[in-house]
Simulated scan of single mutants.
Amino acid sequence: MLIFIFLCLGGFLAAFVDSIAGGGGLISMPVLMIAGLPAHLALGTNKFGGAAGCLSSAYRYIKSGKTNNEILKKLVPFTIIGSIIGVKCVLSISEQVLNILVFVMILAVAIYTYTSKSLGCENTFEKITNKNLKLGIIMAFLLGFYDGFFGPGTGTFLTFALIKIYGFDFLHASANTKILNLASNFTALILFILNGQIDYKIAVFYAVAMILGGYFGAKVAIKKGSTLIKPIFLIMAFGVAIKLVYQSII
């Protein structure tokens, strides 16, 4: 019984944080590993719960009107295609090399965000242009691909990219990130289901906790806006970087 309480609390917290600024996997994966699940089963079970939590927060953001459906309907298909190819290519790139590359990129994003005080504080989006649409499609495909075969920091990269490409503030970037994340999550989830890598006894409890966490996290983010999201975004970005260094050392 205690283990299920631990899983529910961990799942709720992970989804709550993830719905605000991404990086919830830093919490949700260790919780499952502590509960005794082997790595591949933990990945699949985490994706099951994560997809449910993502759906919950995405619904809350859509309902609030913070998403840009015109952009999303153009980018989501490329995120799905990228995720499918990413899952298929998962074994072709060394995880050690990938850790180093992602560490450098995410640390650069965190430092740039910290030093640029005005970044993501004001929503300056005007319209879709050929330039920002092409950049958005490339970004959606690459990060869908990345999420399909690796994952850590996907939400962080997506949020940062949407701010830089479209001029969103953190709130609107986080809202649109959730929809793109939802697309890549469900794509990967289907593949985990087909490969039998989900512990459904745990996944169902985890999913319920993450649905609640995602819903309330998005609600808090919408209420507090970019002033809350930016510091949590920075904490999670540095957290992902530290996790990657730790993984490389052990």
Rank of each mutant, 00 (worst) to 15 (best):
L162S: 05
F216R: 01
F205W: 15
I84P: 14
F192K: 03
M29N: 07
P152R: 10
S92F: 15
G213T: 15
A15W: 00
I198E: 10
A110S: 08
Y146K: 09
L43M: 14
V102W: 08
F78Q: 07
K230V: 01
Y215L: 07
M139I: 11
F168D: 10
N123G: 02
G153R: 02
F48Q: 00
S56F: 03
I232W: 00
I62Q: 11
A15Q: 05
K178F: 06
C54Q: 08
L55A: 14
A173T: 10
G151L: 02
Y61H: 10
S184D: 01
G65W: 13
N69F: 15
I163N: 03
C54A: 14
I81S: 12
G148C: 09
I62G: 04
T115Q: 11
L32Y: 06
L107C: 06
L98C: 09
L228W: 07
K117Q: 09
Q247D: 12
G25H: 09
G136D: 05
A188L: 11
L101P: 01
D169H: 11
G11E: 03
G53A: 06
G144C: 08
M29I: 15
S28I: 03
N130S: 13
F149I: 07
C121I: 11
H172G: 03
L133Y: 12
I211K: 04
G153T: 00
D18V: 00
F6T: 07
A188E: 05
G167V: 14
I5M: 13
I163K: 05
L162T: 03
G24T: 02
K66V: 05
A241H: 06
A39R: 01
Q197A: 15
S19L: 09
L191T: 03
L158H: 03
F141R: 08
Y146T: 10
V87L: 12
N132D: 04
V220D: 07
F4R: 11
V109K: 07
I27D: 01
L135C: 10
I62P: 02
M29F: 15
P38H: 13
Q96G: 09
V240A: 01
V76C: 14
G148W: 13
A183T: 01
D18W: 00
L244N: 09
I100F: 15
A110E: 03
K63I: 09
Y61D: 01
H40R: 10
V245F: 14
S174M: 03
G144H: 10
N46K: 07
